[in-house]
Design a protein around this nucleic acid. Structure first.
Lengths: 128, 128
DNA sequence: CGGCATCCCGAGCGATACTG
DNA sequence: CAGTATCGCTCGGGATGCCG
């Protein structure tokens, strides 16, 4: 698993290391809607491989942004959810998304949303 | 130079591509204090190589976050400054830094600041 | 169902040397 | 002063196959 550096120039670089994985923002977004199972996430994001899904979830878990709960059943059931710390990251992600959407519009870059203004508002009541 | 993708899952990943280079946040921070010359930045950040400094500045310039002004003199003089768009990124970076500082404190990660609460306040009057 | 083990490739970054 | 050019390594991430 990806280890964080022991020291950073700036906390922003730490945040980038935490959420900079290719699928992490998308995963945090989906987990933000509610708890999800492994194959549920796979169906929601068909392009991701099992290896990458496992890896990104494990890193988010190891860094304390996501919680992994295993139910000892047959067949096995594993549920992922956001932690309090992960939840408090939402307004920050929202701010990034706002600026990024502006930038994308100005530069004519295509965007598939997640944390756009409208989608986020649905969950705004979640914020303290 | 690093090309942006033509399409993104989420604007947050776009933002990460824009500021995720190893030295970009630090450069934006220093340029935020005021315009800087090439070797001025090298002295401020002794660990960075000329190659990386050039590359990161060129990418920031190419993406519209930094402006490069060449004075046709001998010896040459080149001054870097933030654009309006780069300037409007500040509150977002500040938000990331706040959350990241909390995280670092909780996890016992050492931080060398830049956009910490106190340092940022000096420039708060800059914000619209 | 929910993984883990391998192999492989390209991007990001550093070191070093040269230049108008 | 302010760069450019080249080499080489590391590591993130994709493809594929096996497992309790």
């Amino acid at each position: 698993m990806k280890e964080l550096q022991s020291e950073y120039q700036c906390a922003i670089n730490l945040v980038i290391d935490l959420i900079g994985g290719k699928w992490k923002v998308l995963l945090l977004w989906h987990l933000n809607e509610g708890d999800k199972r492994f194959n549920e996430l796979r169906r929601t994001i068909p392009e991701i491989t099992k290896k990458m899904l496992t890896q990104q979830l494990r890193e988010l878990e190891g860094h304390g942004l996501v919680k992994r709960t295993v139910f000892e059943e047959v067949p096995p059931r594993v549920v992922y959810s956001t932690t309090d710390f992960g939840h408090r990251l939402q307004p920050v992600l929202y701010g990034m998304c706002q600026w990024g959407d502006d930038y994308a519009e100005k530069e004519g870059i295509q965007m598939n949303s997640c944390w756009t203004g409208r989608d986020f508002m649905k969950n705004k009541s979640d914020l303290s």
